[in-house]
């Protein structure tokens, strides 16, 4: 019998970064899909609004055929707001 522990959910992980060095010109932001993610969750993380998932979908049409099907390890472009 498979245990749920084998596939932990990291979709609610929050991350951040900062530096004492000056920041460079912002490059295009990317995000790597983790287990349990959906476009809505990613939109909520980056824009604070889950309804903006379509913006991410449109920017990644070359990778995503169906917005309900994204996979851990995919690196998505996150367009600026």
């Amino acid at each position: 019998m498979a245990s749920n522990d084998e596939k932990p959910d990291f979709s609610d992980v929050e991350g951040g970064a900062s530096s004492t060095a000056p920041l460079a010109e912002p490059a295009a932001q990317t995000y790597t899909v983790v287990s349990g993610d959906s476009l809505s969750k990613i939109a909520k993380k980056h824009y604070g609004d889950a309804n903006k998932w379509r913006r991410i979908f449109e920017a990644n049409r070359d990778l995503i055929k169906d917005p309900d099907e994204i996979y851990p390890g995919q690196t998505l472009k996150i367009p600026s707001e």
Binding site: F10, V13, G15, L23, A24, T30, Y31, V34, S35
Partner: peptide, 10 residues
Amino acid sequence: TVVHDENLSI
């Protein structure tokens, strides 16, 4: 398993 991935350009 990827937990989180973060970039920062400095």
